[in-house]
């Protein structure tokens, strides 16, 4: 599956330690893998397996204790917090299980928020946010606040926000965890379409096999290590 071009994500010997009262807890014990641009990857594992820690590192929300993480060829594990913030803003879109929209802001303002931190002026922000809402089919709800929207609609607003600054990578943490099966299917179909038609790289954390089945590649974590890494074709075969 991986092409000859440099991978979008390149992880070598990634380790993360957390100090605890009883000593050091090793959340990640040496993870090495590549994710190419345009891949759709599902990350699976029990809680405590290290998958959340791994996602936090991929999302530049945290720095590894040891190891190398290159995003788009750039080593990011030693960047300052301001540089990491800029990287998150430009290169990464987040979709969370609990949607994480700001409840006091309208759908439009929520979607425009990353553009605010990108330094875009107000008019441009609103236009781009409006077009993102149109892409998720919510352009008529742009002035509703999250509480006036259904769960599925809220997640679509969150996806529009993740897409707003046109990132290359979208990280989704249990994006269907709070949705019913019909809405889950719609959200996953939308993700697939994004991946297929726009070549956006998707990394998705889930513990549900049918959600993971949308991905082309599945990576399973256990005790801080990768224990399974197979493409869809391999699994079928």
């Amino acid at each position: 599956m991986t092409g000859s071009a440099a991978p979008l994500i390149e992880v070598v010997g990634l380790e993360k330690d957390y100090p605890t009262g009883a000593g050091v807890f090793q959340a990640l014990r040496g993870v090495s893998l590549d994710i190419a641009e345009g891949e759709f990857v599902a990350i699976m594992g029990a809680s405590g397996s290290g998958k959340s820690t791994f996602m936090n590192l991929l999302g530049c929300l945290d720095r590894p204790t040891r190891g190398i993480y290159r995003l788009g060829g750039q080593e990011v594990s030693r960047l300052s917090s301001d540089r990491l913030a800029a990287l998150r803003n430009r290169e990464i879109g987040f979709v969370f299980q609990g949607f994480n929209l700001l409840p006091k802001l309208s759908a439009l303002d929520n979607v425009a928020l990353p553009l605010l931190y990108a330094g875009m002026d107000r008019e441009a922000r609103r236009q781009q946010a409006q077009s993102m809402l149109a892409r998720v089919g919510l352009d008529e709800r742009s002035h509703h606040t999250p509480l006036q929207l259904s769960g599925g609609q809220q997640q679509r607003v969150a996806i529009a926000r993740a897409l707003a600054s046109r990132p290359r990578l979208i990280l989704a943490d249990e994006p269907t965890g709070n949705l019913d099966s019909e809405t889950s299917r719609q959200v996953m179909d939308f993700f697939s379409q994004l991946n297929r038609e726009e070549g956006i790289t998707l990394v998705l954390v889930t513990h549900e096999a049918d959600i993971a089945a949308y991905a082309q590649r599945r990576i399973r974590f256990q005790d801080g290590r990768v224990v399974e890494d197979q493409t869809h074709a391999e699994a079928v075969a």
Binding site: D82, A85, A86, N89, L101, L113, P114, Y117, A118, S165
Partner: peptide
């Protein structure tokens, strides 16, 4: 706190 976390995740720098 959660709002601050969200803002940071989508690109707010500490000084923002």
């Amino acid at each position: 706190t959660r709002e601050i976390g969200i803002r940071m995740a989508i690109g707010a720098r500490r000084r923002d």
